[in-house]
Design a protein around this nucleic acid. Sequence first.
RNA 1: GUGGGCGUAGCUCAGUUGGUUAGAGCGCCAGGUUGUGGCCCUGGAGGUCGUGGGUUCGAUUCCCAUCGCUCACCCCA
Length: 425
Amino acid sequence: MKIKAPRGTIDFLPGRIELWQYIQEVSREVFSRYGYAEINTPIFEYTELFLRGIGDTTDVVSKQMYTFTVKDDKSYTLRPEGTASVVRSYLEHGLGAAPQPVKLFYIGPIFRHERPQKGRYRQFHQLGAEAIGSQDPALDAEMIVMSMEILQKLGLGNFLVNINSIGCPVCRPTYRQALRDHISPSLAKVCPTCQERFEKNPLRILDCKIAACKEVADGAPKSIDYLCPECQTHYAQVCEYLDAFKITYRQNDLLVRGLDYYTKTVYEVESLDLGAQSALSGGGRYDGLVAELGGPATPAVGFASGMERILLVLEEQGIKSPHSTAVDVFVISLGDAVRTQALVITQQLRQAGLKVETDYLGRSMKSQMKQADRLGAKYVLILGEDELAKGVVQVRDMQDSAQTEVPLSQVVDRLSQNAQQPAKA
RNA sequence: GUGGGCGUAGCUCAGUUGGUUAGAGCGCCAGGUUGUGGCCCUGGAGGUCGUGGGUUCGAUUCCCAUCGCUCACCCCA
């Protein structure tokens, strides 16, 4: 084996892909029930979109993007997140003129050049939603309950919802200053990275994992204590709705998101069953992004979930796709003389809506039976020269091994009736 | 970018005080009387022992390098 999949990418093979599809199926169902319509945007965009949207001092933009130029001198980038593209599309197609708010969801690949580890890949997939055009805190709460419902519908439960409000352009400067004032005296003790952060983004010092920084961050002023009246009211409303929905959450003063566009509400749903990469979904409000990308001042809120991480937890919990891969009927043919007739029956059964397999290797009866068994066939249909001569086929029920002779002319009707309902045990 | 762990069949792994044809289980293929699955038995296919170099009469086993995988840090989904 010479060529392997690039580092940080993975293949999804049969056996695993079923659960992967199930995640999408459940998500689409939940999204649609909450009134979100699917949108599919390109997986690459002009680099500028992300520079302006995400913030060029963030790690994602400064060192994790797959950026390239092809023939023309334009710079393209594989999308490192989904929101900027959705907002770009919203503006490009004048969705500001559509009924408001505009509620969209997406499912697709995301690219970030990082060191891969458990639950983190360079090409990974996110499912996410955006509600653009309203500042209603009900939508903030909706994002949280909706993302949780997807996880719950999939069979997960052991969550911790972390939530915080990081204010808006009105109140954040004040808070930022208060934070600097608190850290300033002990700035020398803090790690080099945080010393840099001190100037450009002191909020990030709060979630630094270095012990010394944690110590300094301990007892730091909390962003929720510095919210302007508007942000305060908004946050209180979000919490009130969550309470009303009976969602248990934790106000986490240290939760600050890595992308610049967030305002007010930020949240993260964490799985207590995962290791280091425990965040299953995260999101928040971004009231400034639409304007930042050249549109009118438009409030918005959204979230995104990492599908590979969800898949990992599902597998660790032993959760499987409810959809069976077993075939309804396996058609055994014995000898070249009956081959065509066997294929015709196979074809007819398939068109009648059954999942049907047959032999393609000219194998022995025993081998074909074995194959039928492995494929989980409910019925096996045996066609040999004797049967063909009599105009019948043997129909074997694989559960109870009962075998009956059925006229060729009736076999499709008979089986399509039987196989519709699960064979009795 | 930093640090730890690991690289032997498709998968999970044995195997060295350096020595003849490198093993097991599972999986795959084929048989176990004439056309019948799940259990069992037998046989078969399949490996540049990650790669390159060095030490040695001889290296999967020792040394060096290199690549890859993995977990963690940073950051995030």
